[in-house]
Each structure stands twice: as C-alpha cells, then as structure tokens.
Design a protein around this nucleic acid. Structure first.
Length: 784
DNA sequence: GTTATCACCTCACATCGGGT
DNA sequence: ACCCGATGTGAGGTGATAAC
C-alpha cells in the first residue's frame, strides 16, 4: 500500500522522457564555419579524389611532414594563416586537427550551395525534400552535416562488434550517416547508425572445404555464388558470380595458361606460388564482359543477404540469417554507437566539433528548454469500443476478452450473426492425417468464431482437387466464407483461390470471403486462430471494434490513397496503374473502398478517382483528411483545392498528409535507453514530424514514420495529423496481438492494390474494351 | 496468423560530364 | 544542342525471428 502511494505520483509526474538521434548545433558556429570559407581554389581537384582519402593520407604523416604541408599551403602563422606550428599545445594531434579542419572547409567551399559547380546538394536525396523546412532548399546545417560525414568517412572505423560464421569471426563495422534537420527552425544534425559486414582476409573459396577439397562434387551448388574478385595491385575488388569450375591448377597446362593470361606481376607471383590442388573458378563479372578465371583463394564470398543462403547450403553454417540478426541494433546499443562516434570526432577534430557544439553535443530531448523540448510528445492510446459500447485496450487479451463477452462492435446488418462456413482440403488425394488435421483446425476455428458471437453453420470438411471444384461445393451449401486447407500439392493455388473468391458472389455479400490455411505449417495455436477469426470477421464486413472518439474530432472522414504500377497483362510491355482508395470514419470504421485500374500520366491520381470517392455525400460538412502513401503531385494538390470547395468540405479544404514509410534513414527516437513507445511524436516544423507507431517487440530500434502535411487554408497542423495516423495504426482486424506501423488508411489502400495485382483481378475488373475501371468494392476487407 | 527489424540485391530513372 | 555512358539514388523485394 505504501509502495503504491509512493510509486504512483512519481510515475504520473515523470512523463516519459523522449530523445532522438538529433543534435542541435550552434547557429553561430555554423555561420562561423561558413565565414571561415577560403576563396575557392583556382584549380578544381579531380572528382575522383573525394576528401576522405586526402584526410586519410594526411593522418599518416609525421610531425615534420605535417608542418611542411601547412607551410606549403600557406596556412602557417608566418604566412598570415591561423595554424601555429610551435609553442604550447602544438602537438602533432593539434596540428593534424587544424589541417583536417582546413581540408574540410576547402571541400565545403567547392560544393557549397553558393558555388554553381556544386552538384552534391541537388543530387543528394536530402537536397529536395529538406527535413524540417520544406521552403528552404538547403538547411543552414547542411554544410555542417557534410563536414561531419567527411570526418567520419576519413577514418577506417574500428569494428564495434562481430559475428561468428563457421570457423570465422566476421567483423561488423559501424557506418554513420549525417543529415541536416531542423526542429522548429533550430539547426540540428541527425545521425543514423548501421552496420556492414567486412569479410576477413582468410575467408575465401580456397578456405571453404566445400569449395576446395570437395569442389568437384559441389559445382552445381556453388554456381551462382556471388563473390568478390581480389584483383592485382591497387585495384579495388570487384563483384561477380561463379559460372563454373575450370579445374585444378596442377591439371595439364592450366598453370602455364593462366600465367600467360594474367598481366599483373602480383597475380603471376601468386599463381606460381599456389599449390597444384588449388581450384580455379570461372567467374562472370557483374560489370559485364567475358568470364574470367580466378584462383579460389583470390575469391571471397560476398557477405550479403541473398548469398548467405547459398553459402549455408555449402554446410559451412546451417543458419542463413546470421548476418541479418547480427546487424540488428537494439536501441541502447545504437545510442552508444552514436555517442562513441561523436566522442571520437571530438578527439579527431576538437575545433570543428567545438564550433558546432560549443557546450558539448547533446541529444534533442523532451527535457530541454523552450521549443526544442516541447517538440516532443506522446499521444495517449485511445480505447477500443466493442459490442454494447464497452471500452477496452485496443490490443491483445483484453480486446479478445471484451469481444467474446459483449460481442463485436457491429455485425454487418444484412448478415446479422448467422454465418455459413465451408472448409475444404485442396488436394486430389488428401491423406487421412491431413483430413484429420483440417477437421480439427476447422472445428477450432468455428469455436473461435462462435466466441465472437457468430452462429456458425458448417457441414464437415470436404476435399477438392481444384479451386473451381471447391467453390462449386461451397456454392451448393450457400457458404459465405471458405476455409482452404492447402496440402503440399496445392501450394501454387493461393492466388487462384483468392481471385476466384473475389469474383464470386456469396449470399448477402459482395463477394465470397476466404481464408487460406497452410497444412504444412505447424499447427495453429490459439493466438493464430484468434487472429484468423478476427480476420474473417473483417473479410465478412463486420466491424469487430472501433476507436473511442477523440475529443474535438467528431465528424471526420479519413481517406487512404495508394498508387502502384504493374505490368499490364492485357498489353505486353505497358504498365498499368492501380489506385486504391479507402474511406473510414475517425473511429476507424470502414465506410467504403474503391479501386481504379488503368493508365496514368505521371504519378498523379486522376481527378475522376477523387471525384468519385470524395462526393458531397461523403464529404459535405465533414473534415476530410487524405493520407497519401508517397507524395501528392502538384496537379493533385491543385485539383483537390478546387474540389474541396465543390463538395463543401468543412474548413474550406482537404487536409493532405504524406506518409513516408522509408524516409531514407529517419533518425531514431528513444525513451531513455529504450525504444520510444508507440504514439511518440517529434514535431519538426508546422508541417513535418516523426511518429513512432506499431508495437512489434523486435530487438531492433523502431523506425519512425515521416509525416508531412501539405500547406492548407487553415495552416497545417502536423500534430493533429500525426494523432490521426497514430489512432489509425491501432485499427487492424488482421491481428489481435501486435499493431502495425502504418495507419489503417494507407495500409488498406496498399494491401488492396497489392491484392488485385497479385491475383490479377485488377485487370479483370475492367469490363470489355475499356482500358480503365473504377469500382466500388464495398466494406468487406478482402485484403486481410 | 501477423508484424518489424536489419542489409543487400535488382531494377528503373535522373542527372552529370565529356565529348561531338 | 545533342548523345552516350557513368554515376548515384530510390523503391521494392528478400528471409529468420519472437512476440502475442
């Protein structure tokens, strides 16, 4: 009791403390560095010599060499420069630091936005959609970010960890990327850390028994293996893939032939030294050209995702995902890595770091003063509402328990609680064991649906040799949902089954609902079955739960839009576009979903699509927010501004929100040393922000979404937009136990577009000669 | 059953520089 | 002004895993 009383105020008062891998820089410091710019060099240095290599060279020089370099460049005090060569504190380290600073500044001048020759900013992925401020073409701290990037890239970073693979220890080297970013106009630097695997020198084909001793036996397994070719002196390794086995070096004439072919002296020496049983491989270079012959010991297997599986088949390691897992960075580790690198930079170039961060570098965090600290917030998690208006947590056992006690929020009125289900094993000749397994799963699933308040009527599980046969049986019994049990010989029928169900009507439904269950997978436990059951409810058009209303957002329409392009099955070589639109209320309840298939000029969603979806009936007197997967084009913005007036949208305009899934390396958000909780938000400007959504418990650091609100009449409100998106991320009928990262709006649009493309139904919806089609697809969530 | 995490691969596309 | 290859970048797909 005492402990409870003590603990509670503490928990309530200490609102979660958030921070991000974003570091405010001193505006004065950035400006000072800019002013120090020297006049551009008379001659332009070759583009092939990026600064890092220059710094790398300089770092190896002796004190004497460093001093003479300073003198030759005219940087020493005697020549009017600002680098002292002697006196107190003028250690090698100090002089080196000054030289590095000079080199960095020189390079910055060459590619600064003011210099016409600069191209790196325009082509940079950060050049155009500048973070934090869309209006400015280049944020004030972009030069600072580049400077830090050069400093980091100029050193071979020590490997921070390693992973075991077979008998090798593979070092993992940290990689850092710096970007300019603004928080409420304050210049900052964001840092994103990742890892890359460095193949050790002794890891080569000659050292893999399967590719050396047993090479002849494994040729077929080894063909296609991606390798790096260690060419002669100076040349960087280039990539290629194994196309065949040439033979052993000792075979008649091979050594002499290879000696004659090779030009590099180094290579010739290696060949003459190699033993007779060294294997020679034919390699097809990725660059093109004819295949080349290499010594096994001069070929390193690529440590890449696609290659690890093939390597694992060579029985070096049984686990092909070792690399991926080793590279995952838990939040605490990621923070330490970033801290360590900034600390290292401070030692390498005290002056630059000191100018950018006069009072030491510190993460932007919610505990900071003024606008910086207030830019962080955590949205409260809304409750879910189930049958009888009961409110519960929107995820997991609580939600399940509430739905089983008081029923779903709404059973589709036309259907009520009755459900005709049909189970069928897809196999010409199912084994008794397979039938038993299917029957048991089907009955468990029926029980689950019963718990959700549905009165399931179902004949026993049948079997059918084809999808059509199965659906004819389903039709006879008036089934509204078909559960397919797939045996080994039905694996390829998934898309056919989905397509046929989509195209068939069912009693009281737009289309037949379907569920695919793979009998080859291990038995479905309660968690899986509960998710399947919930999914079936969504596919039937029921509304299992909605969200508790958000004060102030009473009458809102949320729209998700997604555009995909796919090859047109009717016109070879042409692309067709699939636009999916998804309308729901602010409580998450589905209102309707639409699909457009046809050709599109550019990336713009055709006006006819918006005109059909966003009618006056749907929009009049409501606030309407459109979530777009990707960017709105200018044409769309212009059209929507006009259209909003026509349909009488509240507030005079649509709220347009761009949801960017993979904003190249979004800086991560934390709560202390842990992942930031879902609902965490960092406001970057009036129109941009980073949002953490989803509650997956992966080991890694969560990747926030980048949200951008397009300018609008009432002024953009990125906070409200982020709140809506967080709320919508809590609405899923496909899984009871975890929440996705994306809002239901764009997720539904995305999934629907993918569904049609993968089943081929996007082309079939076009009737007759028409090259395009716009269809209303009802409220059933067939894409689940 | 679904979900996100990591790096890399491939493909498509834009842009740049060096020519003519 | 135009072409062409080189270069760089983005999007989307890949696979194992653990959690509920």
């Amino acid at each position: 009791m005492r402990a409870y009383q003590r603990a509670r105020p503490a928990a309530a008062s200490s609102a979660i403390s958030l921070c991000a891998d974003i570091f405010p820089v001193s505006a004065a410091g950035v400006e000072a560095l800019r002013r120090q710019q020297q006049p551009p060099l008379g001659r332009r240095q070759g583009p092939g010599g990026p600064l890092p290599s220059e710094i790398q060279r300089v770092q190896q020089l002796s004190v004497a060499d460093l001093k003479s370099l300073v003198q030759s460049k005219g940087w020493h005090k005697a020549a009017g420069g600002d680098i002292g060569l002697a006196g107190a504190g003028r250690t090698r380290e100090a002089i080196l630091s000054d030289i590095v600073r000079k080199l960095v500044l020189e390079e910055q001048v060459k590619s600064s936005p003011a210099t016409p020759s600069a191209s790196s900013f325009r082509s940079s992925r950060w050049g155009r959609p500048a973070w934090g401020s869309e209006s400015s073409t280049s944020s004030p701290s972009s030069g600072a970010a580049q400077m830090l990037q050069w400093l980091t890239d100029s050193t071979d970073l020590p490997c921070s960890k390693s992973t075991r693979w077979g008998s090798w220890t593979i070092p993992l080297r940290p990689v850092f990327r710096y970007k300019p970013i603004e928080i409420s106009g304050e210049p900052c630097i964001s840092v994103v850390a990742s890892h890359e695997a460095i193949p050790p020198p002794d890891l080569h084909l000659g050292a893999l028994p399967a590719c050396a001793k047993d090479a002849e036996r494994n040729v077929e397994l080894i063909k296609g293996l991606q390798v790096m070719m260690l060419a002669g002196t100076g040349r960087p390794p280039s990539g290629g893939s194994i196309v065949g086995l040439k033979g052993r070096l000792g075979a008649a004439g091979l050594r002499e032939w290879l000696m004659g072919v090779c030009t590099s002296e180094d290579t010739k020496r290696l060949i003459s030294q190699a033993s007779d049983d060294e294997v020679l491989w034919e390699v097809q270079p990725n660059r093109g050209g004819g295949s080349l012959t290499f010594l096994g010991s001069r070929l390193q297997p690529k440590l890449s995702a696609s290659n690890t599986e093939q390597l694992s088949r060579l029985s070096v390691s049984q686990d092909p995902s070792w690399l991926m897992r080793a590279c995952v960075l838990p939040p605490g580790e990621r923070q330490s890595l970033v801290d360590g690198e900034l600390g290292r930079l401070q030692r390498v170039s005290t002056e630059i770091l000191g100018t950018l961060f006069p009072s030491g570098w510190e993460r932007a965090s919610s505990s900071q003063a003024e606008s910086l600290g207030r830019s962080f917030s955590v949205f409260p998690q809304p409750s879910a509402v189930v049958g009888g208006g009961v409110r519960v947590k929107s995820v997991g056992k609580a939600l399940w328990g509430a739905m089983t006690r008081t029923g779903l929020y709404q059973y589709e009125p036309t259907m009520g609680r009755q459900l005709a289900a049909f189970g069928v094993v897809l196999s010409r000749n199912p084994s008794p064991a397979e039938m038993r397994q299917a029957e048991r799963t089907f009955s468990e699933l029926s029980d689950i649906l019963g718990e959700l308040g549905l009165e399931v009527s179902a004949p026993g599980v049948a079997s059918a040799g084809s999808v059509v046969e199965a659906l004819d049986l389903a039709k006879k019994v008036g089934a509204q949902v078909v559960v397919f049990f797939a045996t080994a010989d039905a694996q390829g029928l998934y898309h056919t089954a989905k397509r046929e169900c989509m195209l068939r009507k069912a009693p009281k439904l737009h289309h037949l609902a379907s569920q695919w269950i793979d009998l080859q997978r291990e038995k479905h436990d309660f968690y899986a079955l509960a998710s399947i059951g919930l999914g079936i409810c969504g596919k039937l058009g029921h509304t299992p739960y909605v969200l508790d209303s958000d004060a102030g957002q009473k009458n809102q329409l949320l729209v998700g839009m997604d555009v995909c392009h796919y090859p047109d099955p009717k016109a070879a070589g042409q692309m067709m576009h699939v636009v999916a639109g998804h309308l729901q209320g602010s409580d998450g309840g589905v209102e309707s979903s639409w699909l457009y298939a046809g050709h599109i000029d550019g990336e713009s969603i055709p006006p006819v699509v918006y005109r059909t979806l966003l009618t006056s009936e749907a929009c009049s007197g409501r606030q309407v927010t459109i979530h777009r997967d990707g960017r709105f084009t200018d044409i769309e913005k212009k059209f929507l501004a006009e259209h909003a007036k026509e349909v009488g949208v509240e507030g005079g305009g649509f709220t347009l929100v761009e949801v960017v899934k993979h904003a190249a390396g979004s800086p991560r958000l934390y709560s202390g040393r842990d992942n930031a909780p879902p609902g965490s938000f960092l406001r970057l400007s009036s129109s941009e922000g980073l949002l953490v959504a989803g509650d997956s418990r992966c080991a890694g650091t969560r990747n926030p979404l980048l949200l951008r609100v397009v300018e609008q009449p009432g002024g953009p409100n990125v906070e409200q937009a982020a709140k809506d998106i967080y709320r919508m991320s809590l609405v899923t009928y496909s899984n009871l136990w975890t929440k996705p990262r994306l809002p239901a709006t764009t997720r539904a649009a995305d999934a629907a577009a993918y569904f049609h493309a993968s089943t081929g139904t996007h082309a079939m919806l076009r009737s007759g000669e028409s090259s395009e089609a716009l269809r209303f697809l009802g409220r059933q969530q067939y894409w689940l």
